[in-house]
Design a binder for these strands. Sequence first.
DNA 1: ACCAAATGTTACCGATTTGTTACCGTTTCA
DNA 2: TGAAACGGTAACAAATCGGTAACATTTGGT
Lengths: 226, 226
Amino acid sequence: METVLVIEDDSTMLRGLKDNFEYAGYHVITAVDGEAGLNAALDTKADLIILDIMLPKINGYEICRLIRKEKLDMPIIMLTAKGEESDIVLGLNLGADDYVTKPFSIKELLARVVAFLRRRKQGEKDTYEFADFVFDISARRLLKKGEEIKLSPKEFNLLEFFLKKQGKALTRDEILNVVWGYNTFSGHRSVDRFVTTLRNKIEPEPHNPAFIHTLREVGYKFDPML
Amino acid sequence: METVLVIEDDSTMLRGLKDNFEYAGYHVITAVDGEAGLNAALDTKADLIILDIMLPKINGYEICRLIRKEKLDMPIIMLTAKGEESDIVLGLNLGADDYVTKPFSIKELLARVVAFLRRRKQGEKDTYEFADFVFDISARRLLKKGEEIKLSPKEFNLLEFFLKKQGKALTRDEILNVVWGYNTFSGHRSVDRFVTTLRNKIEPEPHNPAFIHTLREVGYKFDPML
DNA sequence: ACCAAATGTTACCGATTTGTTACCGTTTCA
DNA sequence: TGAAACGGTAACAAATCGGTAACATTTGGT
């Protein structure tokens, strides 16, 4: 059974999280302050950590940093107070994998945890790096030098597909089938249009692409020269 | 039943691969270091090899090279740690057929294996090598000593056809039918024109061709003296 | 229902690719 | 030896393809 460590000082919240995760079939360990949380993280082998930022004794950022310093690579999902963009970036830089802003729905948090552990178990990546970009699937976010670049859903899915198929030629049909779905009625040129918008967002020189290369008569190929 | 040889030192990964491939209906042989792997590759007649690069005793590149040196042509899929383009190029130059970067999804790897064995059964390869060229169909590119040579769509398709029919005399009609399509209106001389441009891109001495030979009154023949 | 964002489609433009022709040298064979 | 056949290839014309702006439509949130 997979183990989730929840570090949270608000006892009502903690109880809610514990109940829900146990109901969903996880083994839950809890800690109510930073010190206990850090010890639990280092001692037990949790598969995933849910970490509040505001904590007595040692704050969440510090815990995050210390865990990573010990070369432990379990996923960490941070709980942050509402929309402080800078806090989020700080947390991610310290090694967190994802964040959820309070107030949040338990259902959403649970969904992220499940998705995370599934990918982890199947050895799928949840982040891809190229040039100075970090593409984070679970957080559905693209960062360039730590700064977020907003992508529409299609743009995100398209880039995700490109990253998963790095170095391979992809036909417009393959792209349509995967990104748009097998029963789409969209035409081939829709792919081109989204490639253009993606290029405008990620290519330093959209006219001389470094990442998304055109293959005439075929389609496209994502190939960041590393 | 088809046999897959998995050479991988991480026992967890090895177990995962073995289970999945057996579940998918393959006979699986395993080896946990380079020496054992090489022996298994040379002794048993595996239909396909999955080869980790980082291995104790003999590394994956070396195994790849030694297998090819013995003129064994089973497909080799390399597992590379990171998307190091140079590693990948090195591997492909040493005779690997495809690569998957860790971490990868078992599903994806399985899909590639299935695709490979299907093509192999039909006698098709995914990459072709001649002199210091590597022609990679799925990445749709031609490398000369690791450097890309740009080909137009027709040039690419023509070279692909030549490579698939290595050593066979091809009439202009056959070439037109396959590369241009059965309902083309193009004339015979178009073939000549593209042969010329191809020669200019790949032949060291276009006037004294080493690869694409003219067969007077017949057509052409691709024949790299190996 | 309204507005804003996202998505899909179309049309035009420019760059590349492709097909054809013409001219030339080479080979073949009488 | 000379004419005919053939392939090599430069040069030009035509077709094709992808980039993208602009517009239309759909979707989602409030």
